[in-house]
Simulated scan of single mutants.
Amino acid sequence: MSVAYDIVAQEAASARALSALAPVPRSPIAPAQARLLASVAAFTHHRDTDALDHSLALSLAELAPARAVVLCKRAADGRRLESLVRCAADAQGLFCLHTGAPIADDPALEPVWRCMDQQQSFAETLADEHRLYVPILHEGRALGALQLESDTPLDGAHALAEGFARIYANYITLLNESERDKLTGLYNRRTFERHLQRLFDHPEPARAPHERRAGHAGPDNVWLAIFDIDHFKRINDTYGHIYGDEVILLLAQQMRASFRQADVLFRFGGEEFVVLLAGHDEAEARGALERFRQRVASYLFPQVGHVTVSVGYALAAMGDYPETVIDRADKALYFAKEHGRNRTHGYEELVRRGALAAEPVSTGSIDLF
């Protein structure tokens, strides 16, 4: 009897398993719903912040519909906007993306600030243009705002824009946690590798090797600078790791205050940091790095007192490999540390005066891949 019961039970279980594998009839989805789901799936697919920003603006512009969508992002200090992404239709009706740094105190951004400060959506009409402002909120804080522009009222786009803003706020928070160093809030090493690879995927116009070595640079040159804290182990040994962490945190604040909004700042690990900065020529890049070095040297760190950094930098030029540029900046950094510390040296400068050999070099103490 028990054997027969077992056989029946097994057959029933098999039947349930087969029915679970059978295709389930699907209810038809309206085209508008399908487009919405596809857009959400597309923009949450991205794993870096820039791609996510672009996808959000494009998705909203297509679905709202709006003539233009602007994503305004607030800086970590809350006192300024750090970036703008604008998606606007061209003469043929095709959407194009534009990114850039907002102009400080731009009166056109006053409604954006009002939207963020009040944490409320609102609409306004200027001449024949209709605009909708929606804050991007997370845990009681405004991360930024969306601005939608149209020739017709945007009443129907209100719920859609607020829904996208909520999804974006949740997702960008997760991305920031994976992209940024937990102590300083600067970008981390993993994000640095992505930024550098993207830089070399879109190189500047070619220049002859002798021009690069001589420091003749175009207006869109990027310089990679590495610096670390001098005698940082001594700080940890003398004052403890809590004060060591405080030095790193305050140094990150000095970095934000020293460099421009367009420069990209990273904590590479431990007491080592990296900056990607644009400059017309080597003198401009060196000047920015020297100002930062002097700023740190004059700053009084609590309990610890004065702290210095050594800086090495190199030009990121077309035809170079990422690890080669890192190695050049690394060699310049160690030249600075071996010749007194608390100084700034560039690889090209050292090659010109014969302090370093110009022949190709292998990857140094920093490994990118």
Results as ranks from 00 to 15, higher is better:
1 M>A: 14
6 D>R: 15
10 Q>I: 05
13 A>N: 05
16 R>Y: 00
17 A>T: 04
19 S>T: 05
20 A>Q: 10
22 A>R: 09
22 A>L: 12
33 Q>K: 06
37 L>R: 06
37 L>W: 11
39 S>Q: 06
42 A>Q: 15
48 D>T: 06
48 D>E: 14
52 L>S: 05
64 A>L: 10
65 P>H: 06
69 V>P: 00
75 A>I: 06
76 A>D: 15
79 R>F: 09
84 L>I: 13
85 V>C: 15
88 A>P: 00
91 A>P: 00
93 G>Q: 06
96 C>D: 03
98 H>P: 00
100 G>K: 07
101 A>F: 05
105 D>A: 14
106 D>Y: 08
109 L>K: 06
117 D>K: 12
120 Q>C: 13
121 S>V: 03
123 A>N: 01
125 T>F: 04
126 L>F: 14
128 D>L: 13
128 D>G: 03
131 R>Y: 08
135 P>M: 14
136 I>T: 01
138 H>L: 15
146 L>M: 06
149 E>H: 08
152 T>Q: 11
153 P>E: 07
156 G>H: 10
161 A>L: 07
161 A>G: 04
168 Y>Q: 02
172 I>H: 01
173 T>Y: 06
175 L>R: 01
181 D>V: 09
183 L>F: 13
184 T>L: 10
192 F>C: 03
194 R>C: 00
199 L>T: 05
199 L>I: 06
200 F>V: 03
200 F>D: 03
201 D>S: 12
204 E>P: 03
205 P>C: 10
220 D>G: 10
220 D>A: 10
231 H>K: 10
239 Y>C: 08
244 G>F: 09
245 D>G: 11
247 V>Y: 05
253 Q>T: 06
255 M>D: 01
256 R>I: 07
259 F>D: 01
262 A>F: 05
267 R>K: 04
268 F>Y: 15
275 V>K: 01
280 H>C: 05
289 L>N: 04
292 F>V: 04
293 R>D: 01
294 Q>N: 10
311 V>W: 07
311 V>R: 03
313 Y>L: 12
321 Y>S: 13
322 P>W: 09
327 D>Q: 15
329 A>V: 08
342 N>K: 07
344 T>N: 05
347 Y>N: 01
355 A>T: 01
356 L>E: 00
356 L>C: 01
357 A>C: 09
360 P>V: 13
361 V>G: 10
363 T>C: 13
363 T>I: 12
369 F>V: 05
